[in-house]
Simulated assay, not measured.
Amino acid sequence: MQEQGVKSQLFINRSEERHTRLVNQYTPFIFAVLEDLIKGEERRTEKTSIQVGTDVYLLRQI
């Protein structure tokens, strides 16, 4: 994707929670990451995840 000029970021959830429960419980996280992406910032993302590689993050246990 990067070769085609498309920027992407990967967020990995370390817990064993199902997708629907994850979305319901971590709505503030999802909105914070989206807001950072829109504004080109990382301040909210840094509070909720740990960067482990270029554009790869692990979700912190909340």
Rank of each mutant, 00 (worst) to 15 (best):
V56Q: 06
D36S: 09
F29M: 04
L34D: 14
V23K: 14
S15Q: 10
Q9E: 11
G40K: 04
N24S: 14
K7E: 12
L59G: 00
I62Y: 08
Q25S: 15
L58T: 04
Y26K: 02
L34P: 12
V56T: 13
V6I: 11
T54R: 09
K39R: 02
T45P: 11
Q4C: 03
S15A: 11
R44C: 02
Y26L: 02
N13V: 02
Q2I: 01
R21E: 09
Y57S: 05
G53M: 06
I38V: 10
R44F: 09
E16N: 11
Q61K: 13
T20W: 10
F31E: 03
D55Y: 11
F11P: 10
F29W: 06
T27E: 14
T48L: 06
K47G: 01
H19K: 04
S15I: 00
E3M: 15
F11L: 02
D55K: 13
V33D: 13
I12P: 04
R43T: 04
R44W: 08
R60G: 01
V6D: 07
A32T: 03
F31D: 08
Y26G: 01
S49N: 07
M1E: 14
V33K: 14
I12G: 07
Y57K: 10
V56S: 09
E3N: 15
V23P: 13
S15G: 05
T48P: 01
L58F: 11
Y26V: 00
M1L: 15
Y57I: 02
R14G: 13
D36F: 09
Q61R: 12
R14E: 13
I50H: 14
I12C: 08
E41W: 04
I38N: 12
